[in-house]
Simulated scan of single mutants.
Amino acid sequence: MRTGSEPSTARSPLRMRLWLSVWGMIWALFGVVAFVATGRAGWATACAVLLAVTVVDLCVVIRHLRQGPHYQPGRDVPPYEPERGGRGGRSPHVP
């Protein structure tokens, strides 16, 4: 819900998430190689799962970056009014 108090220049930290994913991918890959080399299959599996999670996150971030900016209402669009009433007769935001 838009309240009108959001910063006008707010952006999603996708580039930071991109670099954190790359950093995590490097460390997870290092962990897989190191634990396979020392014969610790359990830890190597855990690092491989973490590697898979970071690769998926990296793909999602790249997809969102390629989509570009989405529509954001400008300063001339007033904030949305909170819903009054509803199904239960009370809005969850009104005490």
Rank of each mutant, 00 (worst) to 15 (best):
G42M: 09
R17F: 08
L51A: 08
S5W: 02
H93L: 14
V55I: 12
S12N: 09
F35M: 15
G42K: 07
A28C: 15
V61L: 01
V53Y: 03
W19M: 14
R40S: 13
A46R: 04
A37S: 13
W43C: 07
P78N: 05
I62K: 10
V33P: 03
L50W: 07
A34C: 09
G31V: 05
L58Q: 06
L20P: 04
I62Y: 05
W23N: 05
R11M: 11
V49K: 08
G74H: 07
H93Q: 07
G24F: 00
P92K: 04
A52L: 14
A46W: 04
V22G: 00
L14W: 04
G86N: 00
A34H: 11
L58Y: 05
V56T: 07
W19C: 00
H70T: 14
G88V: 00
Q72E: 12
D57N: 11
P95F: 09
Y71E: 11
R63F: 05
R63D: 10
P82E: 05
V33R: 13
L50R: 02
G31I: 05
T38N: 05
G86E: 00
A10T: 10
R66C: 14
E81R: 08
H93F: 14
H93S: 02
Q72D: 12
G74M: 06
L65E: 02
